[in-house]
Design a protein around this nucleic acid. Structure first.
Length: 104
DNA sequence: CTATTGACGACAT
DNA sequence: CATGTCGCCAATA
């Protein structure tokens, strides 16, 4: 039984739109769901997300290219990203803006 | 309703 | 470049 709000549902569904090998930011998701300034709320939604391992939440990073956080640990997040072709440099995304995926 | 918290973001120092 | 502070939004106690 999973009980969540529409806000969280939209945030989670947005994750599935991210193509493999690309990433997006909390702010982009926030904008996509209609609350461009709710980046924090989006982060909260993903963190509390009951299906955490079932969604590519590791493809969501901060606006400045840092990883932010991850339910399983940032180390894991880095590993997953590298495995998908997203290279990291000093804990940040390499060519961050080029790999960034914008919802439309 | 108010206060606290959090996987953010922008700006100030 | 590192640290601190404020603003934003939603969930929870």
């Amino acid at each position: 039984m999973v009980k969540i709000t529409e806000f969280e549902l939209k945030a989670i569904k947005a994750l599935k739109r991210i193509p493999r090998g690309k990433i997006t930011t909390y702010q982009e998701i926030a904008k996509y769901i209609g609350r461009p300034r709710a980046a924090r709320a989006v982060g909260n939604a993903l963190h509390k997300n009951p299906w955490a391992p079932a969604y590519p939440c590791h493809r969501v990073v901060e606006f400045n290219g840092e990883l932010g956080g991850y339910a399983g640990g940032v180390k894991k997040k880095i590993g997953l990203l590298k495995k998908e072709g997203t290279l990291l440099t000093k804990g940040k995304i390499s060519n961050f803006t080029k790999k960034l995926f914008i919802f439309k």
